[in-house]
Amino acid sequence: MFEHFRRADEVSRFLSSRGVPVVEPVGVGPVRWDGLVVSFASYVEHDPGWRPDSASFASMVAELHAELRHFPGDLPVAGPLRDIDAVLELAGGPSELVSARDELSARWPELPVQALHGDAHPRNVLLTDRGPVWNDFEDAWLGPVGWDVACAARSSLLVREVVAGAYPADELAYWIELRELFGRCWQLAVDIYRARTRLRI
């Protein structure tokens, strides 16, 4: 958990220094306190009902990538697979999901990599009086740009074909498939958490 908070803090500070509109961290960065990881960020007034245009959002992702290419910090590689593996371990290794994970891992494309947002969909952007502001960089990793394009393309707020046309990415079908497995594992983790929370009540 601390690693995710550290990533979000470092990437956000870097982008802010380059004039990219982001939710800016406050203070010295994430700290451990009473068994928790805590960080602080500026409050941003925004329109929670914002629904972006698909092509415009794809262009926003491309522009963000242009800045992230200069990020000098350390980021994990194969980020989504690491998160999927963590969920599979938590869940006791369900065979269907393990097989899907192994099959996708074996087909991992050899493509150029760079710093990515890691979860680049419209719910991680806030529309403010000064325009859209990026948020939630805790899943940043070093990978092919297709992952972020897939995150946008699979959003229920956007049209997949329009996103793909506005920001063509190599092996996009693969990244969408991996993103779908990631979503299944994420939901499994949520279900496990909710079940364990109910048991404690």
Rank of each mutant, 00 (worst) to 15 (best):
M1P: 12
M1C: 06
F2M: 14
F2A: 08
F2R: 11
F2G: 02
S12Q: 13
R13I: 12
F14K: 08
L15E: 13
S16Q: 15
G19W: 13
V20E: 15
P21I: 08
V22T: 03
E24A: 13
V28D: 09
G29R: 02
P30I: 09
V31A: 09
V37K: 11
V37W: 09
S39H: 12
A41M: 07
V44D: 12
V44K: 05
D47E: 15
D47L: 14
W50V: 02
D53M: 04
A55T: 00
A58C: 05
A58N: 06
M60L: 14
A62K: 10
E63K: 14
L64H: 09
H65G: 14
H65F: 00
H65C: 04
R69E: 11
R69L: 04
F71M: 00
G73F: 01
G73M: 05
L75F: 05
P76Y: 02
G79L: 03
L81K: 01
L81V: 06
I84Y: 04
D85K: 11
L88F: 07
L88S: 01
E89C: 06
E89S: 08
L90I: 00
A91E: 06
P94E: 02
V98L: 08
S99I: 01
S99F: 01
R101K: 02
P112E: 01
V113Y: 07
Q114W: 01
G118L: 00
A120D: 00
H121N: 04
H121Y: 07
R123E: 12
V125Y: 00
W134M: 09
W134A: 13
D136M: 07
F137Y: 03
E138Y: 06
D139R: 12
W141C: 12
A150F: 04
R154L: 15
L157Y: 00
E161S: 15
E161H: 08
V162A: 05
V163Q: 05
D170I: 04
A173C: 02
Y174E: 04
W175F: 15
W175Q: 06
I176G: 07
L181Y: 07
F182Y: 14
R184A: 12
R184S: 04
Q187W: 10
V190A: 13
D191L: 15
D191Y: 11
Y193W: 15
L199N: 15
I201L: 13
I201K: 07
I201Y: 12
